[in-house]
Amino acid sequence: MSSDAHCEKLREVGAELALGVLPGRERAEAVAHLDGCADCREYVRQLTGIGDRLIGLLPDAEPPPGFETRVARSLARQAAGAEGQRPART
């Protein structure tokens, strides 16, 4: 495989690598490529930073039981109400 093909493959799996969920063999191949490719190292470094910031957005506690159901129902009611509204005349 050429270097370009290695870079393309890394871009396909880079997010999984950055999040630490890439399976063993693929991870080993990706890390071996990163040893010699500064562009891909930077790409994965940026993805890792984004992943770290996203994790910081997670709530500290689980939502209360039924939260998802209440939100889904509220969104459905709002969508149904929006469909029945007429555009305002000017």
Rank of each mutant, 00 (worst) to 15 (best):
R86Q: 15
L17K: 04
G36V: 06
L58Y: 05
E62Q: 10
V13W: 03
C7N: 13
R86G: 09
L19H: 08
V31G: 00
V71G: 00
P59S: 13
H6Q: 15
V21A: 06
A5G: 04
D4N: 14
E8L: 13
F67E: 10
D39E: 14
L54Y: 06
C40R: 07
A18E: 03
L57V: 03
G36P: 00
R41D: 01
R11L: 09
D39N: 02
T90W: 10
G51T: 04
A38G: 01
V13N: 07
T48K: 13
R53G: 04
A30P: 01
L58C: 08
E83H: 13
D4K: 12
A80S: 14
Q85A: 13
P59W: 05
C37V: 03
R86N: 09
H33Y: 05
M1R: 12
E29A: 12
L34N: 03
R77Q: 11
G36I: 01
V71L: 15
G36K: 08
A28Q: 14
Q46A: 09
A38W: 06
Q85H: 08
E26C: 02
H33V: 11
S74H: 12
A76W: 01
L75V: 11
A72W: 00
D52I: 07
R45W: 05
A61Q: 13
S2T: 15
E26F: 01
P59I: 01
E68G: 11
G20D: 04
S2Q: 09
E12G: 09
G24P: 04
R27I: 03
G66E: 03
L75W: 05
